[in-house]
């Protein structure tokens, strides 16, 4: 089942008096439950593509359909609705709310979905259990290690059980041990909940776990490879 369809996607940004083309006529599709990665050097267009799929940005040309909704045609409210209900984000620098506790950070997406207090409690505790942080629910991000922060970010992205999780360089600030732990956690969640994961990365540790590798270079798809025996 195709949940993301990208057709002839081009993205240009104004630069000085001219324009810079970040993505050139990209054609891609993603199906439910994929564990895929956009791989490429800096400036290859990975994050731009992830932002458009995440409805944080819009295409200049072409069409991007996420769960049947055309990103280019969504207004701010509908785009926010899509992100709120169906998309989860994991960022390189965690982007946790610093003054909130771990519990409150993970609870945030559920507050937006207007879940009841008892439902929220259960879902947050489940999410914290997935990432092994039930004992840290009252801690605040400054009191946690980088690995723990990223696990909180994973819990926050997964707590509402979204259809798609978009992870932008999720291990860039982590050491090898923490990177593997996080990746294993995400892989387990992918298997258990059948959530589609799309990574933007150039980290070899992440790449080794991917089931599908999409290589980008200068805004174009260079290679799209299905991995037969990925790390698990």
């Amino acid at each position: 089942m195709e949940i993301i369809q990208i057709k002839k996607l081009t993205k240009r940004f104004p630069m000085g008096k001219g324009e810079f083309t970040a993505l050139k006529e990209i054609d891609l599709t993603f199906t439910k439950g994929e564990f895929a990665g956009l791989i490429g050097p800096s400036g290859s267009g990975k994050t731009t593509l992830l932002n458009i799929v995440g409805s944080l940005d819009v295409p200049t040309e072409g069409e991007v359909l996420v769960l049947g909704k055309s990103i280019g045609n969504l207004n701010q409210k509908d785009a926010a609705q899509l992100r709120k209900e169906s998309l989860g984000f994991i960022f390189q620098s965690y982007n946790l709310l610093q003054v909130h506790t771990v519990y409150e950070n993970v609870e945030f997406p559920l507050l937006l979905l207007k879940k009841s207090a008892s439902e929220r409690r259960k879902m947050v505790m489940d999410a914290l259990e997935w990432v092994g942080l039930t004992d840290k629910e009252k801690s605040k991000p400054p009191q946690l290690s980088g690995g723990e922060c990223q696990r909180v970010a994973v819990a926050r992205a997964m707590v509402k059980k979204p259809s798609v999780v978009l992870a932008d360089e999720p291990t860039a600030n982590l050491d090898a041990k923490n990177s593997h732990n996080i990746l294993k956690t995400m892989l387990n969640l992918n298997r258990e909940l059948n959530t589609t994961f799309i990574f933007a990365t150039h980290d070899e540790k992440v790449i080794s776990y991917l089931r599908r590798k999409i290589f980008l270079l200068d805004g174009q798809v260079e290679k799209d490879v299905i991995v037969e025996n990925p790390k698990s």
Partner: peptide
């Protein structure tokens, strides 16, 4: 982050 999580 607020916007990414679903705020307008």
């Amino acid at each position: 982050t607020y916007v990414a999580l679903g705020y307008t």
